[in-house]
């Protein structure tokens, strides 16, 4: 370890400076003040004229850029919201229209089928009445025929039993009398 020898050599110039506490040696003040003045003025000018304005402009640019981007984002969000609103309105309109068309169609179809049903029913009713009329006519005709046959049959039966045919009118009256019962 060379430290002790170095220590003695270190000590020698210290005493060579006349000893004393270096910060209180007034003969060094002049040069320190001159250098401090020079350095601090250079530093101040550099800081005031170059460094701080440049830094301020960098930070201002960044702030402006961020604010601009945020404003742009807000604007785009507004546009997107408007587009969504338009889309939803269109969707709602379309749904309403579809609803209207569906209900109109349903009503129209209901009306048409109702009309169709009524016409068919009317047709059927008419056919029914006609059929009833035909039946009634047929029945009347049949009844008339039955009476004629009955009168003839009654006359023939009486002639067979009694041997003497009754008059046409008496047989008819007797048949009517029975038919009414």
């Amino acid at each position: 370890m060379a430290q002790p020898t170095q220590a003695t050599t270190e000590h020698a110039p210290a005493s060579g400076h006349g000893g004393g506490f270096p910060p209180f040696k007034a003969e060094t003040y002049g040069s320190q003040l001159i250098w401090l003045g020079l350095c601090f003025v250079v530093l101040y000018v550099m800081v005031a004229k170059l460094a701080l304005p440049r830094m301020a402009s960098i930070l201002a640019d960044r702030r402006a850029r961020i604010d601009g981007d945020l404003a742009e984002a807000v604007r785009l969000k507004g546009e997107a919201d408007a587009a969504v609103a338009t889309y939803e309105k269109a969707l709602a309109d379309a749904r309403n229209r579809a609803h209207t068309i569906a209900s109109e169609t349903r009503e129209r179809l209901a009306r048409e089928s109702e009309a169709h049903r009524k016409s068919v029913e009317a047709d059927l009713a008419r056919q029914l009445t006609e059929a009833e009329k035909t039946i009634a006519a047929g029945k009347t005709a049949a009844m008339t025929n039955v009476r004629g046959i009955a009168v003839d049959a009654a006359g023939a039966i009486v002639a067979q039993l009694v041997g003497k045919a009754p008059s046409q009118a008496a047989a008819a009256a007797a048949v009517d009398h029975v038919l009414k019962r």
Binding site: S31, W35, C39, L43, M46, L50, A51, R54, M55, R65
Partner: peptide, 27 residues
Amino acid sequence: TNSALFMIVAVAITGVLMLGTTAGRQL
């Protein structure tokens, strides 16, 4: 002097920190 040398170094470091590193003006 040694004092003057390190005053100059201190000023130079400030210069490098504040001017050298901001020369690119990166966003």
